[in-house]
Write a protein that binds this DNA or RNA. Structure first.
Lengths: 245, 245
DNA sequence: CGATCCGTTGAGGTGCGTCAACGGGAGTGG
DNA sequence: CCACTCCCGTTGACGCACCTCAACGGATCG
């Protein structure tokens, strides 16, 4: 982390710094993992690193899609809304995740920070140019998209066919596994999002989420800890509960 | 369609022919759209064209993933199962769609024909080789994956937050729009899949699907026609009903 | 002509939503 | 420091959209 005087205000709600990609501590998790040192310099020329407070809207569904982002620190949520305000959170993103891909000229979902977060912003045109030049990066991006697609299919199974308890257990397992994948602690599970966010991700209400957590605590499967952490007492039981066994 | 004697049995349940990609009538819809004539020849060398009856399982979740497919004719379903048999159909595929992408060495979902179908089969190793050579095809595949991802997000919104009636209307609209995209009639909508398949796609039961169709018929929004076709009498009403307006 | 499958309809049950109340923590202003 | 207000999470009482179970008719097939 650079001293504060290296930061400068860039736009409302964002702090911007110049960050050399070569020194990026999370590069191995991102699209940038595919690049050689000199390619990284080219990349560093087009990106901005920005820090946002929690609850900051990066962009909304329908906005012109002229930026793409890489999460380096923090958690984000992506969501879609129905006209009457019903909301579906399609996914939570963390360190290494990439967002902002758009088919047309506008975003098809909204993105908002859940915790304070640091992101690398790529101007869309310039990134597309680099992708032409760096086929390795193209391939890396493709394999990340394939991963997201598999996760989306799991989520469809969850939303369409699982009970409330199975949904909560699957969600905790997913968080645990993703933390492990990023080299973080997999237990206790860090759960930074609110009950409302969890509900809108799992197709439930906050009340049902709360009741189900209480039930899991009562039966001794999990226990709550300081700082939005959930200790899984019986990981095997959680696996079984997640699939209805 | 070639005369029958051009077909030869290749494996149980499949008929195989040699098909020059250059003459493929649906190429513009597929991954192959990106290729030049001489590249198409290279592609033709590695593919098999196969025809399957309806209800044929192409592969199952967990099978070794050594083939990829392109749908030229017919409809398929992709699905995942829970241990107790609950099923979620993550999507229906038709002309031009691509399937079989796998992250590891095994498929993460099952695939089965809904109608008689014709597919081009690509051996995975050989296709990966060609993708290295043809970056245009790589890009085309990526944009198709991005499309699928957007569709998956729509489906999550549907599964998590829509009512039964909204689900059915959204489903009909989706079928209509996809037919239009393929240059087929968008109304009446061709609905080749069973009530059970629709239910497992929308997170409902067959009874609820049936009842909801009856309700839409009664209120004059749609009417059933011969040959699995549904005539949408009031397309605007269908749009409104699909989003709860 | 029985057997099977599929779609439809009815009657009744339930998992989760809705509505409401309450308590604790954080921020804010006096 | 307290008083006030939010916001969030929890819990209870109740209702309902959809599920479950069951019956039936039509189509297909050996």
């Amino acid at each position: 982390m650079p001293p504060f005087d290296m930061w400068r205000t860039r736009e409302k709600g964002a702090l911007t710094e110049i960050n050399p990609c070569g020194a990026c501590p999370v590069r191995s998790l991102t699209v940038c993992a595919a690049l050689e040192p000199e390619e990284l310099k080219r990349l560093a020329d087009i990106i901005l690193t920005q820090r946002f407070e929690s609850g900051h809207a990066l962009f909304s569904e329908g906005d012109p899609a002229d930026s793409l982002f890489n999460v380096t620190v923090g958690t984000l949520k992506l969501y879609k809304l129905l006209p009457d305000g019903r909301r579906q959170i399609t996914g939570f993103l963390g360190t290494g995740d990439f967002l902002g891909m758009a088919l047309n000229e506008t975003y098809s979902y909204s993105a908002e920070t859940v915790t304070p977060a640091t992101l690398c912003r790529f101007p869309r045109r310039k990134l597309e140019g680099l992708l032409e030049e760096f086929p390795k990066m193209q391939r890396r991006l493709f394999s990340m998209a394939a991963n997201e697609l598999a996760a989306a299919q799991d989520q469809m199974l969850l939303l369409g066919r699982k009970t409330a308890k199975e949904k909560i257990c699957s969600f905790l397992l997913m968080l645990s596994q993703r933390a492990a994948h990023r080299g973080q602690k997999e237990n206790p599970v860090y759960v930074p999002m609110s009950r409302a966010d969890i509900a809108d991700h799992l197709g439930l209400t906050t009340e049902t989420v709360s009741r189900t957590f209480t039930q899991l605590k009562t039966t001794g499967v999990v226990s709550l800890q300081e700082g939005s952490k959930i200790l899984v007492a019986d990981m095997d039981a959680l696996y079984d509960l997640a699939e209805g066994a």
